[in-house]
Protein backbone atom coordinates (compact mmCIF):
# COMPACT_ATOMS: atom_id res chain seq x y z
CA UNK A 1 0.00 0.00 0.00
CA UNK A 2 2.31 2.65 -1.20
CA UNK A 3 1.79 6.24 -1.93
CA UNK A 4 1.54 5.54 -5.59
CA UNK A 5 -1.08 2.90 -5.25
CA UNK A 6 -3.22 5.18 -3.25
CA UNK A 7 -2.71 8.00 -5.71
CA UNK A 8 -3.53 5.67 -8.51
CA UNK A 9 -6.62 4.79 -6.55
CA UNK A 10 -7.72 8.40 -6.30
CA UNK A 11 -7.06 8.92 -9.98
CA UNK A 12 -8.97 5.82 -10.81
CA UNK A 13 -11.86 7.11 -8.82
CA UNK A 14 -11.74 10.49 -10.44
CA UNK A 15 -11.52 9.32 -14.01
CA UNK A 16 -14.86 7.58 -14.41
CA UNK A 17 -16.55 10.81 -13.47
CA UNK A 18 -14.82 12.50 -16.35
CA UNK A 19 -17.59 11.45 -18.70
CA UNK A 20 -20.37 13.99 -19.02
CA UNK A 21 -19.86 17.70 -18.93
CA UNK A 22 -20.29 18.47 -15.27
CA UNK A 23 -18.17 21.21 -13.76
CA UNK A 24 -14.95 20.28 -11.95
CA UNK A 25 -16.36 21.56 -8.66
CA UNK A 26 -19.44 19.41 -9.07
CA UNK A 27 -17.31 16.41 -9.90
CA UNK A 28 -15.10 17.02 -6.90
CA UNK A 29 -18.05 17.14 -4.54
CA UNK A 30 -19.40 13.91 -6.03
CA UNK A 31 -15.99 12.35 -5.48
CA UNK A 32 -15.80 13.70 -1.93
CA UNK A 33 -19.24 12.42 -1.03
CA UNK A 34 -18.37 9.05 -2.40
CA UNK A 35 -15.13 8.88 -0.41
CA UNK A 36 -16.95 9.88 2.78
CA UNK A 37 -19.60 7.22 2.22
CA UNK A 38 -16.93 4.63 1.52
CA UNK A 39 -15.10 5.56 4.70
CA UNK A 40 -18.21 5.17 6.81
CA UNK A 41 -18.84 1.80 5.22
CA UNK A 42 -15.26 0.69 5.86
CA UNK A 43 -15.50 1.62 9.53
CA UNK A 44 -18.76 -0.27 9.95
CA UNK A 45 -17.41 -3.31 8.17
CA UNK A 46 -14.25 -3.12 10.28
CA UNK A 47 -16.46 -3.18 13.35
CA UNK A 48 -18.19 -6.32 12.12
CA UNK A 49 -14.96 -8.01 11.12
CA UNK A 50 -13.28 -7.32 14.46
CA UNK A 51 -16.40 -8.50 16.26
CA UNK A 52 -16.40 -11.79 14.41
CA UNK A 53 -12.67 -12.35 15.00
CA UNK A 54 -13.08 -11.63 18.70
CA UNK A 55 -16.10 -13.89 18.96
CA UNK A 56 -13.69 -16.76 18.42
CA UNK A 57 -11.88 -15.97 21.68
CA UNK A 58 -12.66 -18.74 24.11
CA UNK A 59 -13.90 -17.51 27.44
CA UNK A 60 -14.17 -14.06 28.90
CA UNK A 61 -13.19 -12.49 32.22
CA UNK A 62 -16.75 -12.35 33.51
CA UNK A 63 -17.35 -16.04 33.02
CA UNK A 64 -14.02 -17.04 34.49
CA UNK A 65 -14.78 -14.91 37.54
CA UNK A 66 -18.28 -16.33 37.82
CA UNK A 67 -17.04 -19.88 37.50
CA UNK A 68 -14.40 -19.46 40.17
CA UNK A 69 -15.76 -21.57 43.03
CA UNK A 70 -14.09 -19.24 45.54
CA UNK A 71 -16.48 -16.46 44.57
CA UNK A 72 -19.43 -18.70 45.39
CA UNK A 73 -22.00 -17.38 42.90
CA UNK A 74 -25.13 -19.44 42.53
CA UNK A 75 -26.60 -20.22 39.12
CA UNK A 76 -29.22 -17.51 39.29
CA UNK A 77 -26.65 -14.84 40.12
CA UNK A 78 -24.45 -16.10 37.33
CA UNK A 79 -27.30 -15.85 34.85
CA UNK A 80 -28.15 -12.35 36.05
CA UNK A 81 -24.63 -11.08 35.71
CA UNK A 82 -24.13 -12.73 32.32
CA UNK A 83 -27.30 -11.16 31.03
CA UNK A 84 -26.21 -7.75 32.36
CA UNK A 85 -23.18 -7.96 30.08
CA UNK A 86 -25.31 -9.41 27.27
CA UNK A 87 -23.26 -12.58 27.25
CA UNK A 88 -26.34 -14.82 27.18
CA UNK A 89 -27.46 -13.63 23.74
CA UNK A 90 -26.69 -15.40 20.46
CA UNK A 91 -23.63 -13.98 18.76
CA UNK A 92 -25.50 -12.19 15.97
CA UNK A 93 -27.83 -10.51 18.43
CA UNK A 94 -24.80 -9.43 20.43
CA UNK A 95 -23.32 -8.02 17.23
CA UNK A 96 -26.49 -6.11 16.37
CA UNK A 97 -26.73 -4.71 19.89
CA UNK A 98 -23.06 -3.75 19.97
CA UNK A 99 -23.21 -2.16 16.53
CA UNK A 100 -26.28 -0.18 17.54
CA UNK A 101 -24.53 1.05 20.66
CA UNK A 102 -21.42 1.85 18.65
CA UNK A 103 -23.45 4.01 16.26
CA UNK A 104 -24.80 5.88 19.25
CA UNK A 105 -21.24 6.42 20.47
CA UNK A 106 -21.48 3.89 23.28
CA UNK A 107 -18.43 1.64 23.30
CA UNK A 108 -19.63 -0.69 26.03
CA UNK A 109 -18.23 -1.60 29.41
CA UNK A 110 -14.90 -3.24 30.11
CA UNK A 111 -15.45 -6.77 31.35
CA UNK A 112 -12.30 -6.85 33.45
CA UNK A 113 -12.29 -3.34 34.85
CA UNK A 114 -16.02 -2.51 34.98
CA UNK A 115 -15.33 0.90 33.47
CA UNK A 116 -16.88 2.42 30.36
CA UNK A 117 -14.57 1.61 27.46
CA UNK A 118 -14.89 5.17 26.22
CA UNK A 119 -13.33 6.40 29.47
CA UNK A 120 -10.50 3.90 29.20
CA UNK A 121 -9.67 5.03 25.69
CA UNK A 122 -10.10 8.66 26.64
CA UNK A 123 -7.58 8.31 29.45
CA UNK A 124 -5.05 6.45 27.35
CA UNK A 125 -5.45 8.44 24.16
CA UNK A 126 -3.48 11.63 24.94
CA UNK A 127 -0.35 9.63 25.71
CA UNK A 128 -0.56 7.70 22.46
CA UNK A 129 -1.37 10.81 20.43
CA UNK A 130 1.65 12.62 21.84
CA UNK A 131 3.82 9.60 21.13
CA UNK A 132 2.53 9.04 17.61
CA UNK A 133 2.57 12.75 16.79
CA UNK A 134 6.13 13.20 17.99
CA UNK A 135 7.13 10.06 16.14
CA UNK A 136 5.61 11.36 12.92
CA UNK A 137 7.50 14.66 13.25
CA UNK A 138 10.75 12.81 13.95
CA UNK A 139 10.10 10.45 11.04
CA UNK A 140 9.57 13.42 8.73
CA UNK A 141 12.76 15.07 9.96
CA UNK A 142 14.73 11.90 9.38
CA UNK A 143 13.21 11.44 5.93
CA UNK A 144 13.87 15.04 4.98
CA UNK A 145 17.45 14.67 6.08
CA UNK A 146 17.86 11.43 4.15
CA UNK A 147 16.16 12.92 1.09
CA UNK A 148 18.39 15.97 1.24
CA UNK A 149 21.51 13.85 1.53
CA UNK A 150 20.40 11.54 -1.27
CA UNK A 151 20.34 14.48 -3.67
CA UNK A 152 23.20 16.43 -2.18
CA UNK A 153 25.86 13.75 -1.90
CA UNK A 154 27.69 12.87 -5.08
CA UNK A 155 27.08 9.41 -6.51
CA UNK A 156 29.30 7.04 -4.58
CA UNK A 157 29.59 5.05 -1.42
CA UNK A 158 28.17 7.76 0.85
CA UNK A 159 25.15 8.31 -1.37
CA UNK A 160 24.53 4.58 -1.67
CA UNK A 161 24.69 4.28 2.10
CA UNK A 162 22.14 7.04 2.56
CA UNK A 163 19.84 5.35 0.09
CA UNK A 164 20.37 2.03 1.82
CA UNK A 165 19.69 3.42 5.29
CA UNK A 166 15.87 3.24 5.04
CA UNK A 167 16.14 -0.48 4.33
CA UNK A 168 18.29 -0.89 7.43
CA UNK A 169 15.78 1.08 9.50
CA UNK A 170 12.97 -1.05 8.18
CA UNK A 171 14.78 -4.29 8.93
CA UNK A 172 15.66 -3.58 12.55
CA UNK A 173 13.05 -4.79 15.01
CA UNK A 174 11.77 -1.73 16.84
CA UNK A 175 11.92 -3.51 20.20
CA UNK A 176 15.67 -3.86 19.69
CA UNK A 177 15.96 -0.16 18.94
CA UNK A 178 13.89 0.76 21.99
CA UNK A 179 15.79 -1.50 24.36
CA UNK A 180 19.14 -0.20 23.20
CA UNK A 181 18.03 3.43 23.39
CA UNK A 182 16.93 2.92 27.00
CA UNK A 183 20.06 1.05 27.93
CA UNK A 184 22.41 3.61 26.40
CA UNK A 185 20.63 6.91 26.94
CA UNK A 186 18.75 6.32 30.17
CA UNK A 187 20.88 3.85 32.09
CA UNK A 188 24.40 4.58 30.90
CA UNK A 189 24.25 8.27 29.96
CA UNK A 190 21.27 9.13 32.22
CA UNK A 191 19.94 11.56 29.66
CA UNK A 192 16.33 10.82 30.41
CA UNK A 193 14.17 9.57 33.21
CA UNK A 194 12.65 6.14 32.63
CA UNK A 195 10.39 6.48 35.65
CA UNK A 196 8.61 9.38 34.05
CA UNK A 197 7.48 7.80 30.78
CA UNK A 198 5.44 10.84 29.82
CA UNK A 199 8.29 13.26 30.39
CA UNK A 200 9.77 14.97 27.39
CA UNK A 201 13.01 12.97 27.32
CA UNK A 202 11.34 9.61 27.59
CA UNK A 203 8.70 10.62 25.06
CA UNK A 204 11.34 11.73 22.57
CA UNK A 205 13.21 8.45 22.77
CA UNK A 206 10.02 6.39 22.64
CA UNK A 207 8.98 8.45 19.62
CA UNK A 208 12.35 7.86 18.02
CA UNK A 209 11.86 4.11 18.45
CA UNK A 210 8.54 4.35 16.71
CA UNK A 211 9.81 6.84 14.14
CA UNK A 212 12.71 4.87 12.76
CA UNK A 213 10.75 2.21 10.83
CA UNK A 214 8.15 4.78 9.78
CA UNK A 215 10.82 7.19 8.59
CA UNK A 216 12.13 4.41 6.40
CA UNK A 217 8.82 4.17 4.56
CA UNK A 218 8.53 7.91 4.15
CA UNK A 219 12.15 8.31 3.09
CA UNK A 220 11.86 5.62 0.43
CA UNK A 221 8.91 7.38 -1.16
CA UNK A 222 10.41 10.82 -0.71
CA UNK A 223 13.74 9.88 -2.29
CA UNK A 224 12.02 8.22 -5.22
CA UNK A 225 9.80 11.26 -5.67
CA UNK A 226 12.79 13.61 -5.56
CA UNK A 227 14.52 11.50 -8.17
CA UNK A 228 11.43 11.54 -10.37
CA UNK A 229 10.96 15.28 -9.98
CA UNK A 230 14.57 15.83 -10.83
CA UNK A 231 13.90 13.95 -14.06
CA UNK A 232 11.02 16.18 -15.12
CA UNK A 233 11.42 18.81 -17.78
CA UNK A 234 9.01 21.31 -16.38
CA UNK A 235 11.41 22.76 -13.90
CA UNK A 236 13.55 24.03 -16.72
CA UNK A 237 10.52 25.08 -18.72
CA UNK A 238 9.34 27.09 -15.78
CA UNK A 239 12.71 28.76 -15.44
CA UNK A 240 12.74 29.60 -19.11
CA UNK A 241 9.29 31.19 -18.72
CA UNK A 242 11.04 33.64 -16.44
CA UNK A 243 9.68 32.57 -13.07
CA UNK A 244 11.84 33.41 -10.10
CA UNK A 245 13.76 30.39 -8.78
CA UNK A 246 11.89 30.59 -5.48
CA UNK A 247 8.58 30.28 -7.24
CA UNK A 248 9.87 27.43 -9.38
CA UNK A 249 10.96 25.58 -6.30
CA UNK A 250 7.70 26.17 -4.52
CA UNK A 251 5.45 25.27 -7.40
CA UNK A 252 7.38 22.65 -9.27
CA UNK A 253 9.81 20.84 -7.04
CA UNK A 254 8.79 20.73 -3.43
CA UNK A 255 5.14 20.20 -4.06
CA UNK A 256 5.35 17.21 -6.38
CA UNK A 257 7.97 15.55 -4.20
CA UNK A 258 6.00 16.09 -1.04
CA UNK A 259 2.66 14.91 -2.40
CA UNK A 260 3.39 11.20 -2.39
CA UNK A 261 5.12 11.78 0.92
CA UNK A 262 1.91 13.18 2.38
CA UNK A 263 0.03 10.10 1.26
CA UNK A 264 2.56 7.76 2.77
CA UNK A 265 2.29 9.71 6.03
CA UNK A 266 -1.41 8.89 6.03
CA UNK A 267 -0.60 5.24 5.60
CA UNK A 268 2.03 5.49 8.32
CA UNK A 269 -0.73 6.28 10.81
CA UNK A 270 -1.53 2.58 10.87
CA UNK A 271 2.09 1.75 11.49
CA UNK A 272 2.29 4.32 14.27
CA UNK A 273 -0.78 2.96 16.03
CA UNK A 274 0.27 -0.66 15.65
CA UNK A 275 3.87 0.04 16.62
CA UNK A 276 2.76 1.86 19.75
CA UNK A 277 1.91 -1.54 21.23
CA UNK A 278 5.54 -2.57 21.50
CA UNK A 279 6.96 0.90 22.07
CA UNK A 280 4.60 1.67 24.93
CA UNK A 281 5.44 -1.64 26.56
CA UNK A 282 9.16 -1.04 26.36
CA UNK A 283 9.01 2.53 27.62
CA UNK A 284 6.32 1.84 30.23
CA UNK A 285 3.83 4.32 28.80
CA UNK A 286 0.12 4.07 29.56
CA UNK A 287 -1.45 4.44 26.16
CA UNK A 288 -3.77 2.72 23.74
CA UNK A 289 -1.16 0.02 23.17
CA UNK A 290 -1.04 -0.79 26.86
CA UNK A 291 -4.83 -0.86 27.01
CA UNK A 292 -4.84 -3.34 24.12
CA UNK A 293 -2.25 -5.54 25.77
CA UNK A 294 -4.10 -5.64 29.06
CA UNK A 295 -7.35 -6.34 27.26
CA UNK A 296 -5.70 -9.15 25.32
CA UNK A 297 -4.48 -10.88 28.45
CA UNK A 298 -7.79 -10.38 30.23
CA UNK A 299 -9.74 -11.42 27.11
CA UNK A 300 -11.65 -8.20 27.57
CA UNK A 301 -13.54 -8.27 24.30
CA UNK A 302 -15.37 -4.91 24.47
CA UNK A 303 -12.08 -3.12 25.09
CA UNK A 304 -10.34 -4.92 22.23
CA UNK A 305 -13.28 -4.28 19.96
CA UNK A 306 -13.30 -0.58 20.76
CA UNK A 307 -9.57 -0.01 20.58
CA UNK A 308 -9.11 -1.82 17.28
CA UNK A 309 -12.09 -0.12 15.67
CA UNK A 310 -10.92 3.18 17.11
CA UNK A 311 -7.55 2.72 15.41
CA UNK A 312 -9.35 1.93 12.18
CA UNK A 313 -11.42 5.09 12.53
CA UNK A 314 -8.31 7.19 13.06
CA UNK A 315 -6.65 5.57 10.07
CA UNK A 316 -9.69 6.01 7.85
CA UNK A 317 -10.22 9.64 8.89
CA UNK A 318 -6.63 10.64 8.27
CA UNK A 319 -6.57 8.97 4.90
CA UNK A 320 -9.96 10.39 4.00
CA UNK A 321 -8.67 13.86 4.76
CA UNK A 322 -5.60 13.24 2.65
CA UNK A 323 -7.63 11.83 -0.24
CA UNK A 324 -9.96 14.80 -0.13
CA UNK A 325 -7.16 17.35 -0.10
CA UNK A 326 -4.99 15.47 -2.57
CA UNK A 327 -6.86 16.25 -5.81
CA UNK A 328 -6.88 19.91 -4.82
CA UNK A 329 -3.10 19.93 -4.50
CA UNK A 330 -1.92 17.65 -7.26
CA UNK A 331 -1.27 19.70 -10.38
CA UNK A 332 -1.32 16.58 -12.55
CA UNK A 333 -4.80 15.68 -11.43
CA UNK A 334 -5.98 19.24 -11.81
CA UNK A 335 -4.62 19.52 -15.30
CA UNK A 336 -6.36 16.29 -16.21
CA UNK A 337 -9.56 17.80 -14.95
CA UNK A 338 -9.05 20.84 -17.10
CA UNK A 339 -8.32 18.69 -20.10
CA UNK A 340 -11.56 16.86 -19.52
Amino acid sequence: MSATLSTAESKERLTPVRSGNRSPARRYSTYALRRVAESVLVVLLAYVLVFLVLAAIPGDPVSSQLDNPQNGYNDEEKAQIRSFYGLDQPILVQLALALGNFLRGDLGISLSMSLPVGDLIGTALPSTLVLAGTALVLALLISLALGYLSQRLPTGAANTSVRFLPTVFLSTPNFLIGLILIQVFAVQLRLFNVIDPNGLGSTLFAALTLAIPVSAQIAQVFITALDETAAQDYTEVAVSRGLRPGAVILRHLIRPSLLPTVTVCGLAVGELLGGSLITETIFGRNGIGTVVQKAVSAQDIPVLQATVVFSAVVFVLVNLAIDLIYPLLDPRLRSKEKAA
Binding site: Y148, Q151, R152, T155, L226, T229
Partner: peptide
Protein backbone atom coordinates in the same frame (compact mmCIF):
# COMPACT_ATOMS: atom_id res chain seq x y z
CA UNK B 1 17.24 6.80 -9.74
CA UNK B 2 18.70 8.62 -12.66
CA UNK B 3 22.03 10.21 -12.05
CA UNK B 4 21.91 12.02 -15.36
CA UNK B 5 18.63 13.70 -14.64
CA UNK B 6 19.82 14.73 -11.29
CA UNK B 7 22.37 17.14 -12.64
CA UNK B 8 19.86 18.93 -14.84
CA UNK B 9 17.71 20.34 -12.11
CA UNK B 10 20.60 20.61 -9.75
CA UNK B 11 21.03 24.33 -9.01
CA UNK B 12 17.47 25.10 -8.06
CA UNK B 13 16.95 21.87 -6.28
CA UNK B 14 20.05 22.32 -4.25
CA UNK B 15 18.65 25.59 -2.94
CA UNK B 16 15.40 23.91 -2.04
CA UNK B 17 17.15 21.16 -0.30
CA UNK B 18 19.30 23.59 1.58
CA UNK B 19 16.14 25.29 2.74
CA UNK B 20 14.54 22.00 3.73
CA UNK B 21 17.70 20.94 5.46
CA UNK B 22 17.83 24.18 7.38
CA UNK B 23 14.21 23.72 8.39
Amino acid sequence: MNAADQTRAAPSRRTVLKATGAG
